[in-house]
Computed example of a mutant assay.
Amino acid sequence: MSRIPTVAIVDDDEAIRDALSDLLMLEGFDCRSFEGASAFLAEIGRTPFDCLITDMRMPGMSGLELLEHLHDRGADLPAIVLTSVVDEHSRARSLALGARAWLGKPVADKVLLNELRLAIQGRDVILPEGSAE
């Protein structure tokens, strides 16, 4: 049975988490936000996430380390990196670990939503139509 997709937002900036959550909920997605990678990892086994949106620079575990951890666990979770980091090595490594997109901050709503829909296509979810321009 199909369901509304659930997106995990991992970013240490509360304003970013809130803005992304508001955008995604307005577009018909369910979402959960986490202030860091360890909080997200504590929840991943309990909630069926369909996509991860993560920042690159965070205290404790970075977004790249989070992607490495998920990859090592064999997690089949599409990820989008949303970052202000301009680092080709981190970008290439993130994509090699399975990130579907590397987007610079600030990102246009339409671009993020398009990448999100592409990342979760084929999963057992009902994709929201969306209206962000």
Score class of each variant (00 low, 15 high):
1 M>R: 13
1 M>Y: 07
1 M>W: 00
2 S>W: 07
4 I>H: 10
4 I>Q: 15
6 T>W: 01
7 V>Y: 05
8 A>K: 01
9 I>C: 04
19 A>N: 09
20 L>C: 06
20 L>G: 12
22 D>V: 13
25 M>R: 15
26 L>F: 12
27 E>A: 13
28 G>K: 06
31 C>T: 15
32 R>C: 05
32 R>T: 03
33 S>G: 00
34 F>M: 03
34 F>A: 00
40 F>L: 03
41 L>A: 07
42 A>R: 07
43 E>R: 11
46 R>D: 14
48 P>W: 00
48 P>L: 04
49 F>P: 03
50 D>Q: 11
51 C>G: 04
51 C>F: 00
53 I>L: 08
57 R>N: 13
58 M>G: 02
59 P>N: 05
62 S>C: 10
62 S>E: 11
63 G>T: 08
63 G>H: 09
64 L>T: 02
65 E>S: 07
66 L>A: 01
69 H>T: 14
69 H>A: 10
70 L>M: 13
72 D>A: 15
73 R>A: 13
74 G>S: 06
75 A>Q: 06
77 L>F: 02
79 A>T: 07
80 I>H: 08
81 V>N: 12
82 L>M: 09
87 D>C: 13
87 D>S: 11
88 E>V: 15
90 S>H: 14
97 L>Y: 12
102 W>R: 15
107 V>Y: 01
109 D>E: 14
109 D>I: 00
109 D>S: 15
113 L>P: 04
116 L>P: 09
118 L>D: 12
119 A>S: 12
120 I>C: 03
125 V>K: 08
126 I>C: 00
127 L>C: 06
130 G>H: 06
132 A>P: 02
133 E>V: 14
